[in-house]
């Protein structure tokens, strides 16, 4: 029976050195949605993504993608890790990074084919980075690096994209490019789940929301979850500070423009 949810997480608990980093998480995400995962620092957002992808061991709980075990459907899932998680001085070009996304279709002992390179260039073009395809990745700006990471996920031609902070530390152009691309992907039927850090933009960018703070505070459609009450519960007393900060920043920007 095909599942209408791209992701079902049941009672997922993850511990680091006996301290819980994620507690009894319960999340269902319908297909064809753009879901934001927000919560304060150390709330277990990245941990959540890594645990459902089996990159770190879960203490308990079960995870189903499209109603199946991860091992069975991993070819349908593309993961975009945090940009800071890799060494950008690594001696390779943007194109070589993107080609890595084709690993599954290249396979063991086989060389990268012209077709793989063509697909990589196509993806680089979609993120507006084709002219930098041969650049060493260390010479790119933070936003350009993020776009290369996104291109690497695009060549996986997945049905579900899991992204860890794709909007962190990038320029306005990149933000627009990534957002447009994510919307295109959703149009074509894919689902996206993003860890996000910026509360003011969350309602604009996503249609579904998961509020996380060690446990899942709320999850569901944006208009049901993005309420003052739920947010206060997730962020505690810090929310007031955050919203004041956001207000004053908005005023500042209004003055400038």
């Amino acid at each position: 029976m095909p599942d209408s949810n791209c992701l079902n997480v049941n009672h997922l608990t993850v511990c680091y050195d006996r301290k819980p980093a994620l507690w009894e998480a319960q999340v269902s995400i319908p297909q064809g949605t753009m879901t934001g995962i927000v919560g304060p620092n150390g709330a277990g957002k990245s941990t959540f993504l890594k645990a459902i992808l089996d990159l770190i061991p879960a203490t308990s709980g079960s995870v189903k993608f499209f109603g199946e075990d991860y091992r069975k459907v991993r070819h349908r899932i593309a993961y975009v890790p945090q940009r800071e998680s890799v060494d950008w001085d690594y001696p390779i070009s943007a194109r070589e990074v993107v080609v890595m996304g084709r690993y599954r279709s290249i396979g063991l002992f086989r060389r990268v084919s012209r077709e793989d390179r063509r697909k990589a260039d196509e993806a680089l073009d979609r993120v507006g980075m084709l002219d930098r395809a041969d650049s060493q990745i260390g010479s790119l700006s933070g936003g350009q690096q993020q776009r290369v990471f996104l291109a690497r996920a695009l060549v996986q031609e997945a049905d579900l994209y899991l992204m860890d902070e794709p909007f962190a530390g990038i320029d306005a152009t990149t933000e627009r490019v990534i957002l447009e691309l994510m919307r295109d992907l959703r149009e074509s039927g894919a689902s996206l789940v993003c860890v996000h850090h910026d509360l003011p933009t969350v309602a604009d960018y996503f249609d579904h929301l998961v509020l996380l703070n060690l446990r899942v505070v709320a999850s569901g459609a944006m208009n049901e979850v993005f309420t003052r009450e739920q947010l206060t519960q997730c962020y505690g007393g810090r929310l007031d500070l955050l919203s004041k900060l956001a207000d004053s920043l908005a005023k500042l920007e209004a003055l400038r423009s």
């Binding site: 890594k50 992808l53 089996d54 990159l55 991993r74 070819h75 899932i77 593309a78 993961y79 890790p81 998680s85 890799v86 060494d87 690594y90 390779i92 070589e96 990074v97 890595m100 996304g101 690993y103 599954r104 690497r152 996986q156």
Partner: peptide, 16 residues
């Protein structure tokens, strides 16, 4: 070797 030394987490998700 390249995938593993550059980005092992992503490498795992693409089956490397």
């Amino acid at each position: 070797l390249t995938i593993t030394t550059f980005d092992a987490a992503h490498g795992d998700t693409v089956g490397a």
